[in-house]
C-alpha cells in the first residue's frame, strides 16, 4: 500500500510532457506519438487486464451484490438499499464501525507520534552502532506475520501471561486481569498490538525522510540559537509533512480495515467489544452466508476509508507546492 502511494507521488513529477516544438515538426511528432501510444497501450494491456479482472471486476460485483439478499449459491432477491439501512440499524455493524474508528488512535496516532519521537532520537546518534541496533529492533515487528504477532500477544495478555506476571512482580497484582477478556481493556489491548506492529514502519519512513533534510538548515538554526525543541518543530516536522501523511494514510487504512490481529486474538469478543467491520464482513459472508449484507458492509467500509484518507492526500499535495 505504502509503495503504491509513494510511487504515485514520485511519478507525478516526471510525466510532464516536453512542450514547445516548432510548428513544422508538429505533424511528425503527432504521428510518432500515436505510434508510441499504440505500443504503450499494447504494453500496458496485460497489466490493465489483470487490474480489471482482479480489482475492478470484483469491486463492481461487490457493489452489485450489495443490493441483493443472496446466500452465495441459490437464487437471489433484489432488496435495493435494505442492506445499507441494516448497517445503521443493526448494532453489530454500526458498533463495529465505531470500534474501527477507536482503533485509529492505537493503530495510527500512537505509532506516528512515537515514530516521530524515536526517529528524532535515533537521528541524534545516527552514525553509531546503537542506531542500527535500535532501528532493527523497532522494525522487527513489521516482518513478523500478523497472525504470529496476534498469537504471541494473546499469550502475553493471558491471565497467567507475562503482562500479569510482571504486574504481580512489581506489586500491582490488583490490576492483573484477563486483558483480552475484559470489556474495558479488550479494545485498547488489541489496539496496542497494532501500535507495536505499526511503530517500526512509521519510524523507518520518518527516519528516511529525516535523512533528506539539508543539514545546513540545522546548522543555520543552531547559529540562530535554536535548541533541540525549536529545531524539531521548525525544521524536522515541516520537512516530514509528506512522510507523516503517508504514515497516517497507511496506518488509518490498517485500522479501519483491520482483521488479522483481531481474528487471532479476540475474534470480536468479549460481547462484540472488539468487533471490526473486516471481521463482521467475514462472518456475514462465510458463516451466516449473507453475501449481500456482507458486500454492503464492505462497500460502506471502502467508502469510509476513502472518505477518511482522501482529505489526508490533499494535505500531502499542499505540502508539495
Amino acid at each position: 500500500m505504502n509503495q503504491r502511494l509513494t510511487g504515485r507521488a514520485s511519478a507525478r513529477r516526471e510525466d510532464t510532457p516536453a512542450l514547445g516544438s516548432p510548428e513544422s515538426r508538429r505533424r511528425a511528432i503527432k504521428a510518432r506519438r500515436l505510434r508510441r501510444g499504440g505500443l504503450a497501450l499494447l504494453l500496458v494491456a496485460p497489466a490493465a487486464l489483470a487490474y480489471i479482472v482482479f480489482v475492478l471486476r470484483p469491486m463492481a460485483q461487490s457493489i452489485q451484490f450489495s443490493f441483493y439478499e443472496w446466500n452465495g449459491v441459490t437464487e437471489s432477491t433484489w432488496v435495493g438499499l435494505d442492506n445499507y439501512a441494516a448497517i445503521l440499524r443493526e448494532p453489530e455493524m454500526s458498533g463495529s464501525i465505531l470500534n474501527a474508528f477507536q482503533l485509529i488512535i492505537y493503530f495510527s496516532f500512537i505509532p506516528v507520534l512515537l515514530g516521530l519521537f524515536t526517529a528524532n532520537t535515533i537521528r541524534g546518534f545516527a552514525t553509531s552502532r546503537l542506531a542500527i541496533v535500535s532501528r532493527t529492533v523497532l522494525f522487527l515487528p513489521q516482518i513478523i506475520p500478523l497472525v504470529a504477532a496476534g498469537i504471541m500477544w494473546s499469550w502475553l495478555y493471558a491471565s497467567n501471561g507475562m503482562v500479569n506476571q510482571v504486574l504481580e512482580a512489581i506489586g500491582l497484582g490488583g490490576v492483573a486481569r484477563a486483558w483480552l477478556g475484559d470489556f474495558d481493556t479488550a479494545l485498547p489491548a488489541v489496539g496496542l498490538i497494532g501500535a507495536w506492529v505499526a511503530l517500526g514502519l512509521c519510524m523507518l519512513l520518518l527516519l528516511a525522510g529525516m535523512t533528506k533534510i539539508d543539514p545546513a538548515l540545522y546548522e543555520a538554526a543552531r547559529i540562530d540559537g535554536a535548541g533541540p525543541w525549536r529545531e524539531f518543530f521548525a525544521i524536522t516536522l515541516p520537512s516530514l509533512r509528506q512522510e507523516i501523511a503517508v504514515c497516517v494514510t497507511v496506518t488509518v487504512i490498517a485500522a479501519l480495515a483491520s482483521f488479522d490481529i483481531i481474528y487471532i486474538s479476540t475474534q470480536g469478543g468479549p460481547g462484540n467489544r472488539t468487533l471490526v467491520p473486516g471481521l463482521e464482513i467475514y462472518r456475514l459472508a462465510f458463516f451466516n452466508r449473507e453475501i449481500g449484507q456482507a458486500s454492503a458492509l464492505a462497500v460502506a467500509l471502502m467508502a469510509l476509508v476513502l472518505l477518511v484518507v482522501l482529505p489526508l492526500q490533499r494535505l500531502n499535495r499542499e505540502g508539495d507546492s
Partner: peptide
C-alpha cells in the same frame, strides 16, 4: 472509475444461472 467498472460485472442477478436449482 468504480462506476464505470460496474459495467464489467455481470448484470444478471447473482446466482440466477446456477445449476443448483435443478
Amino acid at each position: 472509475m468504480v462506476a464505470s467498472a460496474l459495467v464489467l460485472a455481470a448484470c444478471s442477478a447473482p446466482g440466477s444461472n446456477n445449476d443448483a436449482e435443478e
